Simulated assay, not measured.
Amino acid sequence: MFHPLRVSEVERLTDDSVAVTFAVPPELRETFRHTPGQHVALRRVGDGDGIRRTYSICAPADEHPVLRVGIRLVEGGEFSTYALKELAEGDTVDVMEPTGRFVLTPRAGYFAAIVGGSGITPVLSIASTLLAREPEARFCLIRSDRTVASTMFLEEVADLKDRYPDRFQLVTVVSREEQQTGLTSGRLDEERLAGLLPALLSVDSVDGWFLCGPFGLVTGAERALRTLGVRRKTIHQEIFHVDDALAPPAPAATRPVPAGGSTLTATLDGRSGSWPVQEGESLLETVLRSRADAPYACKGGVCGTCRAFLVSGEVRMDRNFALEPEETEAGFVLACQSRPATTQVELDFDR
């Protein structure tokens, strides 16, 4: 469900990114209370169900949390262009309640993150909340950016280093310019990370890994960690951008779409309905024809907002960059990427 919120601040971070803060009225404070690492979907007022985009919350989850998101300009991106060039204090934006499972509930332990570009946004919330709440926690942040000038939340990360010098380790890499100190420039690919990580920290002692950024960095980091013997269940990932040239092609259907068509039954907010699936449409599109309140944001298999439980029937997913293997094994699917493989399919969006 969307709520119209007033913009209280638009802060320029770099030439191509801003941080946007929303004023949350008292009656909605619990609605917008977030777990560190979650994101919200934004929609321009007046766009109806047109332009929606998800952005991670960068603020710590304090007792009185602030709703602040980081937005980086994407070439051709309608909402990011609007946010950087038009959005101003006093404007109103439709904001959906926080969601997402790329989260860390503060607890004692040793945690590490590998991020690229705007992937710092949710990790900033995770690290700042963890270090403030849990004195027995440590955090290592390995971040990659194109240049120092393009680095988002530079001051906020430096502040964490100053406040927690013994518990926060920061490693920075820039890919397009030389640094006077620190690591040499270049991309953090699988081969480089496999050699670099053991020299930076005790890989075996890390209780949880958080990978966030573009598709290539996240998948390369995961492969490097698996090469180093890290267990899959300790690796959490969120992809911010998928370059179609790098992403694997959609898998071929394991069975043909039912010749006689298919019917979808879906439960959403306690109400159920059944509708015929039209040729070529995803299950999310089927639901949206009758239920405009169906949850979604990116429609690209990246954000996970349309996650639903497959109660019965079979589907094929074209792409999945949001669900963890444990989630798909448990029966969850992305409605925006799912197409029916049986004549009857039932989804539950409420689980």
Rank of each mutant, 00 (worst) to 15 (best):
Thr99Asp: 09
Arg101His: 15
Arg101Ile: 10
Phe102Asp: 06
Phe102Ser: 12
Val103Gly: 10
Val103Asn: 06
Val103Ile: 15
Leu104Gln: 11
Thr105Arg: 15
Pro106Arg: 14
Ala108Met: 09
Tyr110Met: 11
Ala112Gln: 07
Ala112Arg: 11
Ala113Ser: 14
Ile114Glu: 10
Val115Phe: 14
Gly116Tyr: 09
Gly116Asn: 13
Gly116Pro: 06
Gly117Trp: 10
Gly117Gln: 12
Gly119Thr: 13
Gly119Ala: 12
Gly119Cys: 14
Ile120Ala: 11
Ile120Trp: 04
Pro122Lys: 08
Val123Met: 10
Val123Cys: 09
Leu124Gly: 10
Leu124Ser: 11
Leu124Phe: 13
Ser125Lys: 12
Ile126Cys: 12
Ser128Ala: 14
Thr129Ser: 15
Thr129Asp: 12
Leu130Ala: 04
Leu130Asp: 05
Leu131Glu: 06
Arg133Ala: 11
Arg133Glu: 14
Glu134Thr: 15
Glu134Ile: 14
Glu134Gln: 15
Glu136Gly: 14
Glu136Tyr: 04
Glu136Trp: 08
Ala137Met: 08
Ala137Leu: 09
Arg138Gly: 11
Cys140Ile: 12
Leu141His: 04
Arg143Lys: 09
Ser144Asp: 06
Asp145Thr: 06
Asp145Gln: 10
Asp145Pro: 04
Arg146Met: 12
Arg146Val: 13
Thr147Arg: 14
Thr147Pro: 03
Val148Glu: 14
Ser150Thr: 08
Ser150Gln: 09
Thr151Gly: 06
Phe153Ile: 11
Leu154Asp: 13
Glu155Ile: 04
Glu156Thr: 08
Ala158Leu: 13
Ala158Tyr: 10
Leu160Ala: 11
Leu160Asp: 06
Lys161Gly: 07
Asp162Trp: 03
Asp162Lys: 10
Pro165His: 11
Asp166Gln: 14
Asp166Val: 10
Arg167Lys: 05
Arg167Gly: 04
Arg167Leu: 06
Phe168Arg: 01
Gln169Leu: 10
Leu170Ser: 03
Thr172Leu: 05
Val173His: 00
Val173Asn: 06
Val174Cys: 01
Val174Trp: 03
Val174Gly: 00
Ser175Glu: 04
Glu177Val: 09
Glu178Asp: 06
Glu178Ala: 07
Gln179Pro: 03
Gln179Thr: 01
Thr181Pro: 01
Gly182Arg: 00
Gly182Lys: 00
Leu183Ser: 01
Leu183Thr: 00
Ser185Arg: 06
Ser185Glu: 03
Ser185Asn: 01
Gly186Met: 03
Arg187Trp: 07
Leu188His: 00
Leu188Arg: 00
Asp189Val: 00
Glu191Ser: 13
Glu191Val: 15
Leu193Ala: 04
Leu193Phe: 00
Ala194His: 04
Leu197Asn: 00
Leu197Glu: 01
Leu197Met: 04
Leu197Ile: 12
Pro198Trp: 00
Ala199Thr: 15
Ala199Gly: 05
Leu200His: 06
Ser202Arg: 12
Ser202Gln: 08
Val203Trp: 00
Asp204Leu: 07
Ser205Asp: 07
Ser205Met: 09
Val206Lys: 10
Gly208Glu: 03
Trp209Asp: 01
Trp209Cys: 00
Trp209Met: 02
Phe210Val: 01
Leu211Asp: 03
Pro214Ala: 15
Pro214Thr: 08
Phe215Gly: 08
Phe215Pro: 02
Phe215Tyr: 15
Leu217Tyr: 07
Gly220Trp: 12
Gly220Asn: 12
Gly220Cys: 03
